[in-house]
Simulated assay, not measured.
Amino acid sequence: MTSRDHDLAGRGAAPLGAVGALVGAMVSIQYGATLAKGLFATCGPEGTTVLRLAVGAVLLGILMRAWRARPSQRCLPALIGYGASLAAMNLLFYMALDSIPLGAASALQFAGPLALATLSSRRWVDLAWIAAAGLGLVLLSPLRSAAPLDPRGVLLALGAGAAWAFYIVLGRRVGRELGVQATAIGMLVATALVLPLGFREAGPGLLEPSILASALAVGVFSSALPFSLEMVALTRLPARTYGTLTSMEPVIGALLGQALLGETLTPVQWTGILAIAVAVLGTARTAGSP
């Protein structure tokens, strides 16, 4: 194989690796959400968010050697905004999860990335996959079911979706300069912002050994692992591709909700899963270079 062949093979492997990283992040973060619900009774959504972010910040800070990062002055505003969007996305999602099912919260939260994917699209084929993903989300959302959802939970999930859109845009910006270290620094900023709310909700109970042991598992699956994988995807995939691929997340949430939380899916919701799967496969096959 010539050097040119090696170069072309490397170019082809990068998008596939980025897609795999994003899928792994979504499975991990949804599984972590099922674990986090067990902490709500003791710590509340706010305290659980603090534990999740703090554990992630410590683990990623060590693994990524975040103390070696030297963000430029031009990067600092985006880095702070990235941390703030990370804090809002996590806090609002957990607060929504306290009152509506995991599948519903995940589907509603996706409104932000889907809107971003639509606004950043320039090709008709991208709009086709986005439309398929949107149809799937409508069919999958429990808003169509007979059981009414808590309006407060719906608004919180939509707010988490808006924060997610900012997280995508700012994450790509800081990731270009800092790489995966941006995740650790952003998580540290997010922890500092949410810390007062967490201590107001749970107080010293956050430091109990049994709580910390559960928080370690939540932090690994909900923060350290998925956000480091997502940073790989954010720096290698176009925003429209990332936004459409993440339509798989409510599917994963619905399946894990059924398996681990006893939630059931209607035939309409399974149709939604099929529509989203088509959008995911279509996007993966037609995604262009970053």
Rank of each mutant, 00 (worst) to 15 (best):
A133P: 08
L255G: 14
A213M: 05
A111C: 15
S222Y: 10
P77Q: 09
F199D: 14
G83N: 04
A146D: 08
V232Q: 01
A259M: 11
S247Q: 03
C43I: 13
I168S: 14
L140M: 11
F221H: 07
P45M: 06
V27W: 12
R70S: 15
A107F: 08
T235N: 08
A128H: 09
Q73M: 15
L143I: 04
W270D: 10
L195E: 08
A131I: 04
L39N: 03
A105E: 14
A25F: 00
R144I: 03
T244L: 02
V251A: 05
V189F: 08
L139V: 08
G262C: 13
T244N: 14
Y94P: 07
Y167G: 01
A88W: 01
E249T: 03
G282L: 09
G10I: 07
L234R: 02
V138Q: 09
L22P: 04
A284K: 02
L245V: 09
V194H: 10
I252A: 01
A165G: 08
G288I: 11
A133K: 01
E201C: 11
A41Y: 02
L195W: 10
D7N: 15
G136I: 06
A163I: 02
G20R: 00
Y94G: 04
A25N: 03
V23T: 07
A277W: 00
G83R: 07
S28Y: 01
G134A: 10
G153S: 07
A224I: 02
W164K: 06
Q73Y: 12
L155P: 00
A182S: 06
L207T: 14
L281H: 10
A259V: 11
A84S: 07
S99Q: 12
V218Q: 10
S120V: 13
A18P: 01
P238Q: 00
V278C: 13
A21N: 00
S28V: 02
I80N: 01
V278S: 10
P267E: 04
T283A: 14
A254M: 13
S106E: 12
I276R: 01
S289H: 08
